[in-house]
Structures are given as C-alpha cells and as structure tokens.
Write a protein that binds this DNA or RNA. Structure first.
Lengths: 351, 351
DNA sequence: AGCGCCTCTACAATCGATTGCAGAGAATTT
DNA sequence: AAATTCTCTGCAATCGATTGTAGAGGCGCT
C-alpha cells in the first residue's frame, strides 16, 4: 500500500499498475502509436494514468525526443504596451498546441539577445519568436539560423528567407498622412523611429512616399529620427522639429510613445493640440484614448499579430512550412489630436 | 577531422577534445566540484568548452538533478499593466541567478490555474510566482503545496505559511482617504475591487478604517464592489454609486482601471473632475499621468515587488528560507483628479 | 499438419549530464 | 623499504520516456 518513495508518478508506475511493460504504456498513451496496443491493455493503461494523475516528465521526454514543447520569445521589454498583447495572444495560440512560452527580455542589447538565443537553444526550445531584431545582420537572428532553429519575426522584417508577421507600416503612415492632408494640412513633419529598426525605416519611407503622392513637400530637416521609442526621445525630436520647421501644422509620429513626447514638446512650446498643431501616433496602445486630447493614431492588430506569428511558427516546427511573410493591414483611429490647421496657416507659403 | 554527426556540442565532445573522461569534464566545469580535478586537466577542459561553445543540455541536466533553472509565473493577463512591470523585474532578478521565467496566463479561471501548475510541475520548475491567487482555498496554491513546490504570492496574501510580497493595501487606501479629507471632502464613496481577491478586501477594509479614524461616516450602500478590475466594471459600479449616494463629492477607487471607468461614469453623468467630483485610483499604472485630468493615485512599487518576490523565491529554493511576508509601503501621487469639493457641498448635511 | 503472416508485447538501447565508488599512482610516514 | 594516506581519474549507474527490433502466440491458408 505504501510505496517506499512516493515521488511523482512516472511511466513505470503506470505500467506496473496496468500490468504491462513501460514501453507498452508509452505506446498506449501516445495517440500516434495507440493502434499498436490491444484495446484492453490500452484501456487499463489509460485508466491507470488517469487515476494516478500521470504526466510525462518534460525533461525526460525532451531529452529523448529532442523536442521540448517550449517556444522562446525575445522582446525588448516585457512591460512594453505594444508587445504585451502580442505575447498574450501568442501564448494563447501556442498553448492550444501544448507549447509554453519562455519569455526572455534582453532589452535593446543585440549581443545579449544572441546570448539569450544560445541559452534558449540549450533549453531545447522548439522555435523562437523574435521581436527584437534590428534591420540588418542581427546577431540573435544569425544565432537562430546557425542552429537551424525555426524563428518568426514579429513587427520587424528581416530580409528574405525569414518568416515575419508585420503590420503594413508604409500603408499605416499613408493613412495618417492622408488623414492630415484631408483636414487641410500641407506642412507636416515626421517624428521618426530609430533608424536601425525596420519599423523606423518603413514608417519613414511610408511618410515620404505618401507626402510625395499627395504632392506635398518634405523639406530637408522636416524628418527627425528619435534615438529610441520613448516618451523622452519623442519630446527631444519633436522639440527639434518645432524649432526647425517654420509653419509646421502637424507632426506625424512613428509611434504612440513618441507622440506622447510630442505632446510634451508642444505643451512646452505653448502650442495647443489640435488648435495650433495636430499630432498623430502609431500602434494604438492601451489608454491613448484616455489622454488629453485623445490621440489620433494608426491601429495595428496586436492580438492577430501574436496569433499569426504563433501559428506560423508552429507550422514551421511541425512541417517546415515555407517562409512567407504575413502583412496585416492597419486602420486609422480618428480622435481628438488631429483637426484642421489654423485658418490660413495651412496654406502659408504654398502658393 | 570531420565528425560524422556535427550535432550541438555535448559533454562527451568536450571531454574528448580535452583528453579526459566526461565525468572529469563535468567536474571541471562545475565550480562546486572543480577542486577535485587537477589544474592542468581542468584548464584543458575549460578551454575546450569555451572554444567549442559548449552549453550543458538543460533537459539532461534537469532529468539528472531534478532542478531545471526554470521558474513558473501565473498571472491573470500578461498584458495587464500592473503585472507586466512586476514580471519584468522578477525576470531580471531571476536571470541573475541563471533562472528563466515561464509565464502562464490562466486568465481568471482558478481551475485552469491549477491545471497550469500541474503542467509547470511536469516541466520541473524549481518554484512558482503566483499572482492569481484568490483569497481562500485557491486550487493553484493548493496544487503547489501538495507537490511541495516553493511558491511566492505576489500582490495577494494567502494565509499563514505562504510567503508573499504585497503592497500595504490598507495603508494605501488610508493615504487616498486622508488626502481627500484634507482637501475638505466628507462624503466619500468607494469603488471596490472584486470581493474574492485579497486586494479587493484589504483596500475596502482600509477605506472603511481610514474613514472611521477620521470620524467620517460610510453609510450603507456607499461601497460598491466591481465584479472585476476593468474599466467597464468600474463604470458600472461608479454609476451605481453616483445614483445611490446623495451629495457624494469623491470616489476612492480600488484600482486605476476602475478609476478610469469612474471617469466614464462621471462624464456620462455630466460631472466634471475634479470640479464636481474627485476621483482617486490605486497602482499608478503607466500613462495615467497623461489622461485628462491626470489621475491622483496610490503608487505601489511594482519593480520592487517583482524583485523581492524573485529573491524570496530563490531563497526558498536554495535554502528553504522561512515564509515571511514582505509588505511594501505605497506612496500617494497627487495629480489633477482630486481637488477641494464644490464650495459648501462638502459639508452638506454634515452638521 | 505445416507454413507463413499478423498482432501484440517485452527487451534493451538511447538521449546527455551527474555522481557514488573504486582504483591507480604519487606523496608521505614509520 | 614498506605501509599508509592523499589526489586524481575513470567506470558505471542513474534520471524517465521513446522506439527499433525480436519473439511469442493466434489465425488463416494450402
């Protein structure tokens, strides 16, 4: 009755209880091999497993099979309001397939990111979600490729053979620019994201292309890249633009946090939003509808990004699916931070 | 020269390269057993390990030693702005000790939480951080205790023998109440958190005690518990209170999200904040300083909670430290949502 | 009856690192 | 010089699940 070592139940224990060999028990519990076991024996095994609350030991299984049902995620800041909902959705989608998410936060250090990839690889993760990749020659991505680890980029594009899930950043900036132009703005400046990040580059190009398509000028100096996606960095860049761009009536920002910084800069310059100047963001973070004035911004589908990225990765893990990129469509959310330019000012010097 | 299978380097490979037996290599690489190995041999092993980029296989190590250098975390919503910074800080503190964080998000379902504990236990986690525990008889906590898994509660207290890191919720509510009273408010209602959660209970009690200490009445019906910590739930509870409490001049809310809901309710009732009514929150979530008006709230030290919880858990894992609870002091952050009551109204009916 | 085939089960090796134990030499003591 | 200790290294078992292979028994066929 009393087992000498009442450790957690293992396969041998279940097999003994069912009166079969461990290998038979293993096959009876695995749906893929169950057909190799006679029905009565399989029934006894399953009954015993259920009764004892058996769970296969993940370490042993991982050691033997090489798979771990773990997926690593590299993000720059778990608390980042953009990545948090993406991770939540990805974790939910992975859980449906029996995978758990191992989150690693290397911050903005690419070397540390590569180090984390090595650590995750040593933990035998089945694949990785990378949200930290810079535009070119990222060490973390290189580390994945070198090890043959399936990887999917999120909100970052990384060249040819790498699958990625991104929002259409060019289209997103075009939405913002066209919205401002429709309100009557002609003198629009751009608070850009960090140049090494693909979102920074894409959104900047999207801004310039959309302006060109509308026949609006972008004088030199009317685009300023922030050094990071942060409120303080946004304030710094926006302050520069306000001082440097005569007659500017709108700031199209590459990111909501940058837009919040732009709010600070405008407030400091005594410019009221949207009466004196309009501001738009990008991402539609939580709570930006509650700030004053509510931020007009470009919404990217965070949950869907996480879900799609997870599915894409699972497909690659299971069957080595091709490396197609998924591009999701952003939408414009019009709120209170954008309005028509001050009468007569939008046209100043244009004709 | 060409190895037949250029798999990832394992201990045998390193040992061969250094001309020793794997067991010797193992000892040479483990600081605790290095003294058993002669210096020259140990040097060769370490050099070979470094040169080949050797990392011990986590699954094999875990299988043999029973430890995994993994810590599980159960949170209700990864994207929750309160828990995200806690997790980030905990992950950083754990990483310093070589542990990684496995995040599981069972939502608000206690049964699912217990299921997740079983899954994490099967993955041999060394310990768990529980942020989902309800006040009494939580299945997840019970599952930990049954398995003898070290666990630390975060932002929730769970009875005697369980270590926990919490903010002093009673003191926090007292800060808010005393602040409102100092401004002249006497008719204060409380938008409470969910009753089954320890924060909901503690903050409610803190509110009532602080009011009593100041000699202020809390008539029946002036406390309304929201059904969950959410904006919609906050609006519902606040609307009830506004309709039910004649002459109310301030709403002390158990949580920032509830306070945001209270904003919505006040807006709908045509009450301006803080002119017609004051509102306070709890937690000091990111961005609540940017909303209109900026939210007066009680700041709890999220980063420190995460760090302390991680350290407490590590202590328990390493040396079975005692189960003392850590209580952190909150601070009041005064912003624009609280002000003096409308002239003459704060005293209405009081004398 | 004899043969082969088919179904089912058990055996044993394997994944990679750790660790108790034993033994080979060297160093020290008597 | 012999005996004893000490230092170091190798051997082999172990953790728990998976899986290739072999063999036992039952069935149908000629």
């Amino acid at each position: 009755m009393t087992t000498p070592t009442p450790r957690s139940v293992n396969l041998r224990r279940v097999a003994d209880e069912a009166g079969v060999h461990p290998s038979t028990a293993s096959r009876a519990l695995n749906p893929a091999t169950r057909h190799l076991v006679a029905a009565p024996a399989a029934g006894r095994v399953q009954e015993a497993a259920a009764r004892l609350g058996y769970r296969p030991d993940a370490a042993a299984m991982s050691l033997r099979t090489g798979r771990s049902r773990l997926v690593g995620a590299l993000v720059p800041g778990i608390a980042n309001p953009v990545f948090a909902p993406i991770l939540a959705a990805a974790a939910a989608a992975l859980a449906e397939d029996g995978h758990a998410l191992l989150v690693a936060d290397p911050g903005d250090d690419p070397e540390r990111a590569a180090e984390f990839v090595a650590e995750l690889a040593a933990r035998r993760v089945d694949g990785l979600l990378l949200a930290t990749v810079s535009l070119r020659d990222d060490p973390a991505l290189a580390a994945c490729l070198a090890r043959g680890l399936p990887a999917v980029l999120i909100n970052r594009s990384g060249g040819e053979g790498v699958p990625a899930v991104v929002s259409d950043d060019r289209a997103g900036m075009a939405l913002a620019v066209r919205h401002l132009a429709a309100l009557g703005h002609r003198r629009i400046a751009h608070v850009g994201g960090p140049a090494p990040l693909s979102t920074g580059l894409q959104r900047r190009e999207g801004f310039e292309e959309a302006m060109a398509a509308l026949g609006l000028p972008v004088p030199p100096g009317w685009v300023e890249a922030a050094t990071a996606y942060g409120r303080a960095e946004g304030e710094a860049a926006a302050s520069l633009l306000l001082a440097r761009c005569p007659g500017v009536t709108a700031l199209a920002c590459a990111n909501d946090l940058l837009a919040l910084g732009a709010y600070d800069a405008c407030r400091r310059a005594g410019l009221r939003i949207p009466a004196a100047i309009s501001v738009t963001g990008h991402n539609d973070m939580p709570l930006v509808d509650m700030i004053e004035p509510p931020l007009t911004t470009v919404r990217i589908p965070h949950e869907e990004m996480g879900r799609r990225a997870a599915r894409l990765l699972l497909d690659r893990i299971h069957q080595g699916a091709p490396a197609g990129a998924v591009v999701l469509a952003p939408t414009l959310v019009e709120r209170g931070s954008s309005g028509p330019p001050r009468a007569g000012e939008g046209d100043a010097g244009s004709l």
